[in-house]
Simulated assay, not measured.
Amino acid sequence: MLQDPHGRIINYVRLSVTDRCNLRCTYCMPEQMKFEQQGNLLTDDEIIRLLKMLAYDGVSKVRITGGEPFMRPNLLSLLEKIKNIDGITDIAITTNGVLTKSFIPALCDLGIQQVNLSLDTLQANRFERITRRNKFAAVMDCFHTMLQHDMQVKINTVVMDQVNTDEITAFAALTELKKVSVRFIEEMPFNGQQKEFSGINWHYQRILDTIREQYELVKIPDLPHATSLNYQIPGFSGTVGVIPAYSRTFCGTCNRLRISATGSIKTCLYGNNMLNVRDLLRQPLFRDMHIRSGIQAAITERFKDGFEAEKNFLEDVKESMSIIGG
């Protein structure tokens, strides 16, 4: 098992399969983004070899992220290979929904039902301002199609001051008739912009208080290692959650490892890259046991929480979330 110095077992990997994205969300990346050359990204064979090693050491859940994962050629073929890895029992995807609709039947055939949909507004004009792209109709079409296929859909909404806070209750209202989880995420500093991030005005308690102005919220049990605090509005079909991504209240139970599309491993979202596993995979003399030892060594240096990791962060400018992998 992969275990950090604080006794936390790592059994969940968030794997970015591409740094490319067809949106340019203002809180995630600059409008002019320089992407990696294809040869710098992990290949399918490297990803499968890496996940087999991680599964051997106890990882059972994989979330596929990007960039936008459906920008990677032949993603379905890769997903099928991942599904066949012994020990991997849970595969989920985070997507912006622009390209996803046509893949939904195939995902269902593979048994991949858990999808997080990034959606920060329910207004077409505002969507274009946030994402710098006119793709709102495609995303909403994808959302409804996923529900029609009984997929387990979670909407991830980043709450941004003076941008979309007036839509918090409208998002909560989606859960009345739709069996969907709407999760409000505190804004984070990973926007790839060369400017200071001075903190947030909309912390998770303020988001909950805003919902309570219109609806009663009943606390429901959170799953083990969950990053969200979850609630239900009485009589509604879906659920509402808040993710204290900036407040970092969930660090004590964190069970995840992040791997970028270029093979950089982060043991904490707010920390440095600890190891580049792509470089190890491409060393002919490095056997699996050497790579597994390198990953374990990175995990043994894991900080207690995101605040401690941020204090030791070596870069002056925060990375783009699209590079980190969502």
Rank of each mutant, 00 (worst) to 15 (best):
M1Q: 01
G7N: 07
R14H: 04
N22A: 04
L23M: 14
C25R: 00
M29N: 01
Q32D: 14
M33W: 05
M33H: 03
K34W: 08
K34H: 12
Q37W: 07
G39W: 07
N40A: 15
R49L: 09
L50F: 15
L51S: 04
A55F: 09
Y56M: 10
Y56Q: 12
G58H: 03
V59T: 00
V59S: 00
V62E: 12
V62T: 13
T65L: 12
E68S: 13
P69T: 10
L75Y: 12
L75E: 13
L75R: 02
I85L: 11
D86Y: 12
D90C: 07
T94S: 15
G97D: 08
L99G: 04
L99P: 03
T100A: 15
I104D: 01
D109V: 05
L110V: 03
L119I: 13
L122K: 02
A124P: 05
N125D: 15
F127L: 09
R129D: 11
N134V: 08
F136L: 08
F136S: 09
T145E: 15
L147A: 09
L147D: 07
H149S: 05
M151S: 00
V153F: 11
K154Y: 13
V158Y: 03
V158T: 11
Q162K: 10
T165W: 07
A172Q: 11
K179P: 09
V180P: 12
V180Q: 05
S181R: 11
V182M: 08
F184I: 08
F184W: 06
E187Y: 08
P189A: 06
P189R: 02
K195T: 14
E196N: 12
W202S: 03
Y204I: 04
Q205R: 14
Q205K: 14
R206I: 09
Q214H: 14
Q214K: 11
L223A: 15
H225S: 13
T227C: 13
Q232V: 13
Q232W: 10
P234S: 07
G238P: 10
T239K: 10
I243Q: 02
A245K: 00
A245Q: 00
S247F: 14
F250E: 06
C254F: 14
R256Q: 02
L257M: 03
I259C: 09
S260A: 05
G263T: 05
K266H: 15
N273E: 15
M274I: 10
L275C: 05
N276Q: 03
R282M: 02
Q283K: 09
R292H: 01
R292I: 14
G294Q: 06
Q296E: 09
A298H: 03
A298L: 04
E301A: 03
R302P: 01
F303A: 11
K304T: 02
K304Y: 08
D305Q: 02
A309P: 06
K318F: 14
I323P: 00
I323C: 06
